[in-house]
């Protein structure tokens, strides 16, 4: 599971008012190289919730993303794009869990696949 996906996932358990972002518990992280596409990065940039993204990257062992003053002008920097690309698309949570920020309920991630299925009393 990529951090792009993490940034798009929420807990939808009944009664939870804000299920985003999910906290990450990482047991195994893998990296897979992907060619960079700057247009994609430039388009998706404004859709990314930056703070949770930085936190998630740190949890997976990558702490080179800027935390403050993240302006669209950064997208002109090749150095920034490279890091953004790496964190968003190349780092995968392979084994671990995603934790609901309000209830602490854990959604397991196995072989890179998050299990977001809810139990009957959670729907």
């Amino acid at each position: 599971m990529r951090l792009l996906t993490h940034n798009m996932l929420s807990s939808t358990i009944k009664g939870v008012s804000n299920g985003f972002p999910l906290t990450i518990e990482a047991a195994k992280v893998v990296e897979k190289q992907v060619d960079m596409n700057s247009d994609f990065l430039k388009n998706i940039f404004s859709k990314i919730e930056w703070k949770p993204f930085v936190e998630a990257a740190k949890t997976l062992g990558f702490s080179e993303l800027p935390e403050e003053d993240v302006q669209p002008s950064l997208l002109d920097s090749h150095e920034f794009l490279t890091k953004f690309h790496h964190a968003l698309l190349e780092i995968h949570l392979e084994e671990g869990a995603l934790v609901c920020p309000e209830t602490g309920r854990k959604f397991p991630v196995n072989k890179g696949i998050p299990n977001m299925l809810l139990l009957e009393d959670e729907v």
Binding site: T5, P114, M116
Partner: peptide, 11 residues
């Protein structure tokens, strides 16, 4: 990116 969920509930 493959996910186990009901329709697209978490997305």
């Amino acid at each position: 990116e493959v996910m186990n969920m009901d329709i697209a509930s978490g997305l």
